[in-house]
């Protein structure tokens, strides 16, 4: 009996002296907050049937007084030119959110077009030039083309996209857009290579090959994103560490992701990257340039050939009098090794 009592006492003493077990804390970490449309790894855009050079536009020489229905409508009936552009692309077109005033290379180009259309310089508040901000990702639905009208019938939500006469928003000239929207491009007014941007401290990076295993951001379904996917595939095939292509629905979100440390680099048009660099002094635009360059054109409905010819005429006159080059230097002069303004190409003599 004594033995039992002694054992019991020993157990109680040991139990009483043992330290209480700490409550195990659930391991937790800060949640990642990513924009809608963020895809990692990015997905290649669907293949597009080849088409004749979509950058070959309509010759302004073909514009005659008898065939100017759209120009007559704009000048005499509507008495206004409605232009869709971006509000978040520094150097191209940005808007002051408080005053609503637009500034940028494309804004200056469109002001010249409006000036020649109405025959006199227009003040910034002149109602004859209406600058309209396009919903992100849907700007080309704003053109009144047969294909867009059919899509608007199927997707009623697109009816809230305003109808405009032309869209000038660094629209890359591609066959895919011609086929999807039924639009026609002006002659190209801008050429840009693709460049690479990293954060300060990453200057050791020279090209995508130095970014193996790291995330590189581009706009979804763009040629830049497709190129980065191809670079990643090539690196993998060569047995090198591959970059991780990431895409977002709006390229301007890449800068936010870079600043927040959620991506390691941005791969897009070098002129856009220069706009990013001016917004963030800690972002570094590298010397790397893609071997191929893309062109931008003004998008117009394919039902408005007279407007296309008129716009091409204005661009040609701007090329001839040096004003396009002057604007190019004014807005993009800080970009090293920038491509020159492209020459116009026409399908008709």
């Amino acid at each position: 009996m004594r033995v039992v009592l002694a054992a019991l006492a020993a157990v109680l003493v040991v139990t009483g002296c043992s330290a209480p077990e700490p409550v195990a804390q659930e391991p937790r970490s800060a949640p990642d907050v990513l924009p809608n449309g963020y895809v990692s790894p990015a997905v290649h855009s669907p293949p597009v049937a080849p088409c004749p050079d979509p950058g070959r536009s309509l010759n302004p020489a073909g514009l005659t007084r008898a065939q100017m229905p759209t120009l007559n409508r704009i000048r005499n009936e509507d008495k206004r030119l409605i232009v869709g552009l971006s509000q978040t692309a520094p150097l191209f077109s940005r808007r002051d959110l408080t005053t609503g005033e637009h500034t940028g290379f494309e804004v200056d180009v469109v002001r010249r077009i409006a000036q020649e259309l109405f025959g006199e310089p227009l003040s910034t508040s002149d109602p004859r030039l209406r600058l309209v901000t396009m919903p992100t990702g849907s700007r080309l639905f704003a053109l009144d083309t047969p294909k867009n009208r059919a899509v608007r019938e199927r997707r009623p939500e697109l009816r809230e996209v305003p109808i405009v006469d032309l869209v000038i928003a660094d629209v890359s000239i591609t066959c895919e857009r011609v086929q999807t929207y039924g639009l026609r491009y002006s002659a190209p007014y801008l050429t840009a290579n693709t460049g690479l941007m990293v954060r300060r401290g990453d200057e050791g990076v020279r090209s995508p090959d130095d970014l193996g295993g790291r995330e590189v951001c581009s706009g979804a379904q763009t040629t830049n994103s497709d190129q980065m996917i191809e670079i990643s595939d090539r690196q993998r095939a060569e047995g090198k560490p591959a970059v991780i292509p990431v895409s977002v629905s709006d390229t301007s979100e890449c800068l936010m992701l870079l600043q927040r440390g959620l991506v390691d680099a941005i791969y897009t048009d070098v002129l856009i990257l220069e706009g990013f660099r001016q917004q963030d002094p800690t972002a570094v635009l590298l010397d790397y340039r893609s071997p191929t360059a893309g062109e931008a054109g003004i998008a117009i409905s394919d039902e408005d050939p007279d407007l296309v010819r008129f716009v091409n005429g204005v661009l040609d006159r701007m090329r001839a009098d040096g004003s396009l080059a002057a604007l190019h230097t004014r807005w993009f002069g800080s970009v090293p090794n920038r491509e020159p303004i492209p020459a116009s190409r026409y399908v008709d003599p």
Binding site: T88, A89, P90, D96, L97, S252, M256, F276, Q279
Partner: peptide, 8 residues
């Protein structure tokens, strides 16, 4: 007046 503010 930096447009990246809109992204944030």
């Amino acid at each position: 007046n930096q447009p990246v503010g809109t992204s944030y």
